[in-house]
Design a protein around this nucleic acid. Structure first.
Lengths: 223, 223
DNA sequence: CCCAGGCTTAACCAGATCTTTACGACAATT
DNA sequence: AATTGTCGTAAAGATCTGGTTAAGCCTGGG
């Protein structure tokens, strides 16, 4: 049975979709806000997401952008707006399709199936892998040579941030912002310590790192 | 055994429903006012709610609206009024079905079962098993090594939530929201206590848990 | 009315985790 | 060669988190 996650702040819409989609044979999960929704993607691992724009806590597009940094799960955007420019922007941000309210449930169903057919199942795994190192976002785990590595919350945040960048450099500023909020420049020392202890766990030879690489003066990179 | 909460201000009706529903195999809880009812939803954790309109302290519809902001529990509205417009409004607000007084108990029973089937596909006949531990959603029981374990309502809610996640991590926030409603961040201490006592019941060695695992800084997981 | 079960709160403890600090290595610069 | 700044490491201390226990409160049933 296919699992669908509905992210919408209006309870009535959630209910409506729940009923119509269950009738179509989907297993339906719901989330009432953007943050809740992002979390739910990880926990319920749906096959497809229906995302309403105009959530209270966060812009739908930024949610989509964040989601796309670590997941390729198909997302269909649902919204009352249907300006041509909006549609383009959203598809650019990684949406798979677009349905405007009020929607015809048959049309929605058809588009969902199309999106499901289109996706490559092998890419739906929310994981980042390099050689013997695997960052499993879905289960919040780090695996090295098949063995799970116990990392602290901060260490996971660092390695996840680097993994999401997919091998590209992540600057000190970016990491600091992600870990300690926007105005934390004094934590550079702390960051160094955490990187150090992280290397002890994921590197064969911590003093000569092969995965968590320092880019002097810039930041770090996972490769 | 399914739990049903009856919210009605008339003692006679409460009694009547209590008797007929108990005969049908439900465990019945009652509340005599809207505020009492809202509270009871949290404390008794029913599987379904029967809500009478025309409560003294509050409009039934606003109660429904509030409930729907944090719970998807099936609600069947019972009322003397049966204006078409009212029915539509109520279903819009999130009611699952509508029965007008005086009601036929067979009809009510049928509609309750329909609502339960529709809204809780995960609980229909499902069980979650890991080694010697079984969470029996259908009968609301926990079995360990063939023996039933007596758990309190809150403990059952916790273990059921974890079981539904099927071994994946459930965050503190998710659990808190599910157990105490949307704005309960202060209950973390209480959650810890319940987890502790739950472990005493389902773990061979509670100080070294093998099933109910702590994911430091994140939440819990059943495996 | 009292009693028992269940929930919450508070206190305490242990261990994990984070930050701070100090120091040494290294490279680039003067 | 000395200076400067960046980075890694180790150790210490502070802080946080989670588990446990016991006490008190509330509620429903006898």
């Amino acid at each position: 049975m296919k699992r669908v996650l509905v992210i919408d702040d209006e309870p009535q819409i959630r209910r409506l979709l729940e009923i119509t989609l269950e009738a179509k044979g989907f297993q339906v999960f719901t989330a009432g806000s953007a943050t809740e929704g992002l979390q739910a993607v990880q926990t319920v691992r749906p096959d497809i997401v229906l995302l309403d724009l105009g959530l209270p806590d966060r812009d739908g597009q930024s949610l989509l952008a964040e989601l796309r940094t670590w997941s390729t799960i198909p997302v269909i955007v649902v919204s009352v707006r249907d300006l041509e420019s909006d549609i383009v922007t959203l598809l650019d941000s990684g949406a798979d399709d677009y349905v405007s309210k009020p929607f015809n449930s048959e049309e929605l169903f058809a588009r969902m199936n199309a999106a499901l057919r289109r996706t490559r199942p092998d890419l739906r795994e929310a994981k980042y892998e390099v050689a013997e190192l695997v960052v499993d976002f879905g289960n919040r785990r780090v695996i090295k040579s098949g063995e799970e590595v116990k990392v602290t919350p901060t260490e996971y945040a660092i390695v996840a941030e680097l993994a999401k960048a997919g091998g590209r450099i992540v600057t000190h500023a970016q990491l600091l912002r992600e870990l300690w909020g926007p105005l934390a420049e004094e934590e550079r020392g702390s960051l160094r310590v955490h990187v150090s202890s992280l290397r002890k766990k994921i590197e064969d030879n911590p003093s000569c790192p092969t995965h968590l690489i320092t880019e002097p003066g810039i930041g770090y990179r996972l490769c």
